[in-house]
C-alpha cells in the first residue's frame, strides 16, 4: 500500500505477477489484483480446510496464518505461508503426496 495516498498497489511478490496496462490509470488493474489476491486466499483456505488453520489478509500487504484459538503468525508473502501452516498443523503439506481430489467432495 502506498504510505502517502493509502492506495493499494499491485503487490511485489512474484505470485502477484503485477503489471499496469497504463501507469497513468492504475485503478482498474489494482482493483483486479485485489480480486486475485482474494481468490488466492480463498484457495489457500480450501486447502487448509479441516486443519483448523485459516489464512486472512493483513492490511493488503501481508497475511495472517491463524488458528481458531487466535494464535498465529504474520507472513510477508504467500511463499511464507506453507512453513507456518505446516508448523501449526503439525504435519507437512506435500503437493506430491496429498491427493487434492477427494477433498472436493
Amino acid at each position: 500500500m502506498c504510505e502517502v495516498c493509502a492506495v493499494f498497489g499491485l503487490g511485489r511478490h512474484w505470485t502477484d505477477a503485477g503489471t499496469l496496462a497504463n501507469p497513468r490509470l492504475p485503478a482498474p488493474d489494482i482493483a483486479r489484483y485485489r480480486i486475485e489476491r482474494r481468490r488466492r486466499i480463498q484457495l489457500f483456505n480450501a486447502i487448509l480446510a479441516g486443519t483448523g488453520i485459516v489464512l486472512s489478509d493483513w492490511d493488503g500487504e501481508s497475511f495472517w496464518v491463524g488458528r481458531n484459538d487466535g494464535s498465529g503468525e504474520r507472513v510477508a508473502d504467500l511463499g511464507g505461508v506453507w512453513p507456518v501452516a505446516e508448523r501449526l498443523a503439525g504435519r507437512p503439506i506435500d503437493p506430491l503426496e496429498v491427493d487434492f481430489a477427494p477433498a472436493q467432495s
Binding site: 484457495l43 505461508v81 503439506i93
Partner: peptide, 16 residues
C-alpha cells in the same frame, strides 16, 4: 489460472 498455479508452485517449492 494463475492464482491456482502460483499457489501450487509455492507449495511445491516449499517441500521440494
Amino acid at each position: 489460472d494463475w492464482a491456482s498455479f502460483s499457489i501450487w508452485l509455492t507449495c511445491l517449492l516449499n517441500r521440494h
